[in-house]
């Protein structure tokens, strides 16, 4: 039991990582990573949602009729996302403004529903909770790495603090749309190249 829990915790961090192996949840990966601060908030929101949604769905898995399963899943996710949205709006209005629609889009983030379908539907609540948490973290650290490079190269700062000083010319492409695609592509390239070895 204990070893299974550990395994459940570790696989989404490496060889079954939702972002760079399964290529899920890319939308928000790209959209929120131009500033590290926003990314941290977004990641916490996703971890919260995916952990609790998997847990809730796992508890209910035997009473939900198969035909309306998807609908129930969506409603569970949406409920948690609304909680995240309201909390952010109340305590961090500035970041909430910058994240804009992307908080709501956690609902359609394939990772959350993917884990519910693939894992929580056939496993007990405890393990599902761990799986949700691990998938959230596996997703989160990739986002943080990407956001780190995008903010560093694009604005010369980390979390708003200047790193390079005046001589640095900002690569403004990095904070714009194409930069996100390139950084993620390079990240996948590096990771896949290492995995082959």
């Amino acid at each position: 039991m204990a070893s299974k829990a550990v395994k459940t915790l570790i696989t989404p961090l490496g060889k079954e990582n939702p972002v760079f192996v399964q290529i899920l949840g890319i939308c928000s990966t790209l959209a929120v990573t131009n500033k590290l601060e926003n990314t941290i908030v977004m990641v916490l929101g996703v971890i919260f949602t995916t952990t609790l949604s998997s847990f809730t769905f796992s508890i209910l898995r035997k009473v939900i009729p198969a035909r309306i399963r998807m609908m129930v899943e969506t409603l569970i996710i949406a409920t948690y996302v609304i909680i995240v949205d309201i909390v952010l709006k109340a305590y961090m209005p500035e970041i909430w403004q910058q994240l804009g629609p992307y908080v709501g889009l956690i609902i359609t983030n394939c990772i959350v529903m993917g884990r519910m379908e693939a894992f929580a539907a056939s496993n007990p609540p405890g393990l599902s909770l761990i799986d949700g948490l691990a998938s959230g973290i596996g997703y989160g650290y990739v986002l943080l790495i990407i956001a780190f490079f995008r903010e560093l190269l694009g604005s010369g700062t980390i979390l708003g603090f200047s790193v390079f000083g005046d001589w640095w010319t900002n690569w403004s492409i990095m904070v714009m749309a194409p930069g996100a695609f390139f950084v993620l592509a390079i990240f996948i390239w590096v990771v896949k190249g290492r995995m082959e070895e």
Partner: peptide, 8 residues
């Protein structure tokens, strides 16, 4: 391409 929606 500018809002990254529908990438999956």
């Amino acid at each position: 391409l500018s809002n990254y929606l529908g990438m999956c």
